[in-house]
């Protein structure tokens, strides 16, 4: 019983990572075969040469990187102010609102303003929309990083004669490196995964990778949808692996 549960668990966890790449390599997969009739790189060469997916891949990577950098940098700094604010609890509670709100519904709420400012259907609009949901999350992520101990360390730099710039460059940033890296990963993924808000604000004109995958699902093109899905799960898997290695190093 316990063994069956364990096997089932491993299957549930691992199967999509085998199935989706396999499907992207298939040209035909007849029922009830458990593996495709033949495996080729046909879709991959096609997808990467025509543009389409490779364009979306680059575009998504660029957007996610921009959102991650902007949100992590600003969130890290603003979280410091909020962590030391007399109304810290209220401010943190506010940060939960946009984060908890369904992104697609938030996008419909914002649509009027984005239309008025001609941001609908533009890359800038999608960036701003994603920023509005990812930035509050960084506050939740970083507010507990700014402990009284870190503050004491910062003050120590001042009494030792250091300027605020020196406190940041010689102490605060170096000791916050793991937290910042973690923040970058998580915000990158929030943007990288985002579909609901992007589809509303981008209006199909901003083809990120999730938007592209949805299109392929709609066109009943499972092979390309699987290909896009495989691309979507690669960076997060890489991050997880890097994090795993990092943890192992710490334990060692």
């Amino acid at each position: 019983m316990k063994k069956a549960f364990f096997t089932g668990l491993i299957l549930v966890l691992a199967l999509p990572f085998v199935y989706l790449p396999l499907l992207s390599l298939a040209t035909q997969w007849r029922f009830p075969l458990l593996i495709p009739d033949e495996l080729t790189l046909q879709h991959w060469t096609q997808a990467l040469s025509i543009g389409g997916i490779s364009g979306s891949l680059l575009f998504s990577a660029f957007t996610a990187l921009a959102v991650a950098l902007a949100c992590t940098a600003l969130g890290f700094r603003v979280a410091r102010t909020i962590a030391r604010h007399p109304h810290r609890q209220t401010l943190v509670a506010i940060a939960y609102l946009p984060y908890a709100f369904s992104p697609v519904i938030y996008a419909f709420c914002l649509q009027f303003f984005f239309l008025k400012t001609s941001l609908n259907g533009t890359v800038a609009g999608v960036f701003l929309g994603q920023f509005l949901i990812v930035f509050p999350f960084t506050i939740i992520l970083f507010v507990n990083h700014w402990t009284p101990r870190l503050r004491a360390m910062e003050e120590l730099v001042y009494t030792l004669g250091g300027t605020p710039a020196a406190a940041w460059s010689r102490v605060l940033l170096p000791i916050s490196r793991p937290a910042l890296l973690n923040g970058l990963f998580q915000t990158f993924l929030l943007s990288w995964f985002e579909y609901g808000l992007t589809s509303v604000i981008g209006q199909g004109r901003v083809p990120t990778l999730p938007v592209r995958v949805y299109q392929y699902i709609g066109e009943a093109n499972p092979y390309f949808a699987a290909l896009g899905s495989t691309l979507l799960i690669c960076p997060p898997l890489l991050f997880l692996w890097l994090n795993h290695r990092f943890q192992q190093k710490i334990h060692a």
Partner: peptide
């Protein structure tokens, strides 16, 4: 591992 799967991919899967 499953944390690496975006919702749209989870739906497709």
């Amino acid at each position: 591992w499953p944390l690496a799967i975006p919702p749209i991919v989870a739906a497709f899967w």
